[in-house]
Design a binder for these strands. Structure first.
Length: 519
DNA sequence: ATGTAC
């Protein structure tokens, strides 16, 4: 395997982002971004394989690295990553003040804002930085799996009606408003209290749901008062909406069980009808991120932070900007969990109406896990701010936060494939703490930009091809379909295999789509 | 991802 790492500037002179002339500094950094890797050259001792599907780029690669960069991938995925700037972005992450151990990229890694999507980094509290770009614009974008007691064959004739009803009940697409318009005081409660409020006061859900959501659907560090007026305006009527892009609701069948013990613990069986919900905090979270990036950018000089890429805007966790962002991020996360909770309620309404309110038609929450979030977690006795951007927490067995029924098998991890392809349920392995700060991948990962996908794929033809395979498509826009075409994504089987080979999480079940609802 | 370019 031949890899050559090429840095276009000398390692002894890391670029600085002089905050007195940010625009010029930004241009310099941009100019230094290509290329990081050339394929088919002699290998370098700077990149070495640490284990199965685990690689490390030595700290000596660039003088400004504080820790090494690691990547979970097989050789083919690594080669793919080298085609965009994601590895360079991961190297940039290693320069952040307070970073501990290593920055690590998941096998679905690709370019993002500042951090790569699929990047994980832990910074030491209290004074290590928190960086909004390490969480992403869609704060607490995440995935929730619902499992019914139905066999898909029992209801195959009802699927078109179910999909249609869901499409009528759930607003999808860019900027769409929902049926719930929250009064300011109600929005405050959603932001501060998350799903317990939605369940307890609005009556949408059960106590059982709460036990099967990461963090119980409520981060207590949230402070509604630190969410800007503009963010609240954008979010007040978006609870219970799906959004656009890669967000979707999919009705699926469990095609194959890989791990009988874990599947039994999660309540999954072959032929079962499941529903996968993928969405986040909509315009509210986006505005929280935008607000924080601006504020932190202005505070860099005061904090004496010099950045290699301005998109890595950050502030010490303990600083006013860091605390404001963390409290607002937690509030946006509560909003996102609440959003998935309201969507769950809509699914239950539709299923109950169409199929009758029976034990079998009840959609139980298997788990709900964030993949764009920062969490305070303890590693080696140290409290870290673990940034996961396009990365799923993957706790192994025995972690106190897990539901009791999952304590022996580990945390459910959901890996949605691209539209029309398989999704996976995995379970976190004990080794994940040391390998990846207890993190796994979050999806197949883009390999084509949205623009490139639109050029290459005709939405109407994709729709026909999906229908020909018996997949129901509820999506008003052919353009949106084209952007999310399977060709735009990496091979999800390969991505999941890399995570499993590395020892982070193991396969429990493979799910295939029956109907997809998207913006 | 996103009232898609303050």
């Amino acid at each position: 395997m031949g890899w050559r790492f090429v840095s276009t500037r000398t390692a002894s002179t890391p670029p600085s982002c002089s905050t007195s002339e940010p625009a010029a500094a930004f241009r310099r950094v941009e100019a230094s971004m290509e290329p990081i890797i050339e394929v088919s050259r002699p290998s370098t001792p700077l990149l070495r394989q640490l284990g199965p599907a685990l690689h490390e780029l030595d700290k000596g690669f660039r003088a400004d690295m504080r820790v090494p960069a690691r990547i979970v991938a097989d050789d083919e995925l690594l080669r793919r990553m080298a085609e965009d700037r994601s590895i360079l972005q991961l190297v940039n992450v290693t320069t952040l003040p307070g970073i501990q151990g290593f920055a690590i990229g998941m096998p679905d890694m690709h370019e993002g804002y500042g951090f790569p999507v699929g990047g994980v980094a832990g910074t030491l509290l209290p004074d290590g930085v928190i960086s909004p770009g390490g969480i992403g614009f869609d704060i607490n974008c995440g995935v929730r799996l619902l499992a019914t007691g139905l066999r898909h064959l029992e209801v195959s004739g009802d699927l078109p009606a179910l999909a249609h009803d869901l499409a009528r009940s759930i607003p999808t697409g860019f900027g769409r408003h929902g049926r719930l318009a929250l009064k300011p005081a109600e929005l405050d409660h959603v932001l501060a209290d998350g799903v317990p409020y939605v369940m307890g006061v609005l009556g949408l859900g059960t106590r059982e749901d709460l036990a099967h959501i990461e963090a119980g659907g409520h981060l207590p560090a949230a402070d509604a008062a630190r969410v800007s007026t503009r963010a609240r305006e954008r979010g007040h009527d978006q609870l219970g909406t799906l959004g656009g892009g890669n967000h979707f609701i999919e009705i699926q069948r469990v095609e194959h069980i890989h791990d009988a013990e874990a599947a039994a613990a999660f309540g999954l069986f072959e032929g079962q009808l499941t529903v996968l919900i993928h969405t986040g905090s909509r315009g509210l979270g986006h505005q929280v991120c935008t607000d924080a990036v601006r504020k932190m950018d202005q505070a860099l000089a005061r904090e004496g932070i010099r950045l290699v890429d301005r998109q890595l805007a950050c502030a010490p966790f303990s600083s006013p900007e860091g605390q404001d962002y963390y409290a607002a991020m937690c509030a946006a996360a509560n909003f996102a969990w609440s959003n998935r909770q309201v969507l769950t309620h809509r699914v239950r309404e539709v299923f109950g109406r169409r199929l009758g309110e029976r034990t079998e038609t009840w959609a139980r929450v298997v788990y709900d896990v964030a993949h764009n979030i920062a969490k305070v977690e303890t590693y080696g006795g140290q409290k870290l701010c673990v940034h996961r951007k396009g990365a799923t927490r993957a706790f192994g067995p025995g972690e106190p936060e897990l539901p009791t029924a999952y304590a022996r098998v580990g945390q459910p991890v959901f890996i949605p494939g691209s539209m029309g392809t398989a999704s996976f349920v995995l379970t976190g392995q004990g080794g994940s703490r040391d390998i990846s700060f207890a993190s796994a991948c979050h999806g197949a990962g883009r390999q084509l930009s949205r623009a490139a996908a639109k050029r290459q794929v005709v939405g109407a033809e994709l729709r026909k091809a999906l229908n020909a395979r018996g997949i129901i498509v509820e999506c008003p826009s052919n353009a949106e379909l084209a952007e999310e075409a399977p060709e735009a994504y990496k091979d999800v089987d390969r991505v999941v295999d890399a995570v499993e080979t590395a020892g982070i999480a193991r396969k429990v079940a493979r799910l295939v789509p029956l109907a997809v609802l998207k913006g």
